[in-house]
Amino acid sequence: MSVMEKRLQLLLDAERYALVSQEATRSGRSVASVIREAIDVRFEQAEAQTRRAAALGEFLALGPDEDGQPEDVVAALQGEFEDHLDRKGGP
């Protein structure tokens, strides 16, 4: 992570602050660190959802090959999936 460059003032209600504070205490971190992690998790999930939606669109756009054989499409998808896993370092 980069050096912290921006300061933010954030107002929380008592219930939210208690949740964040308890997690900070439990994990031995600062409240700010817990909030930064929550932001990271939230946006990582949004990015993953966007990638999944794009992949689904690509999948739904696929059809049988020139011979009308869906097996070739499945084999191609399997190959692409395996390539993706190799790039990501495995399952």
Rank of each mutant, 00 (worst) to 15 (best):
E47A: 11
E47K: 03
A48C: 02
A48P: 02
Q49G: 14
Q49P: 03
Q49S: 14
T50F: 10
T50I: 15
T50E: 13
R51Q: 07
R51H: 07
R52Y: 13
R52I: 12
A53G: 14
A53T: 14
A53P: 04
A55I: 09
A55S: 13
A55H: 10
G57V: 01
G57I: 02
G57T: 04
E58Q: 04
F59V: 11
F59P: 02
F59E: 01
L60F: 03
L60A: 01
L60G: 02
L60M: 00
A61R: 11
A61W: 01
L62D: 05
L62V: 01
L62I: 00
P64G: 10
P64C: 06
P64R: 09
D65V: 09
D65W: 07
D65Y: 05
D65F: 11
E66A: 13
E66P: 06
E66N: 04
D67M: 05
D67G: 01
D67N: 08
G68L: 04
G68I: 11
G68V: 08
E71V: 07
E71W: 06
E71C: 03
E71A: 10
D72A: 04
D72W: 01
D72G: 04
D72V: 00
V73N: 00
V73I: 00
V73E: 00
A75R: 12
A75F: 08
A76P: 02
L77M: 15
Q78V: 09
G79Y: 05
G79M: 02
G79K: 00
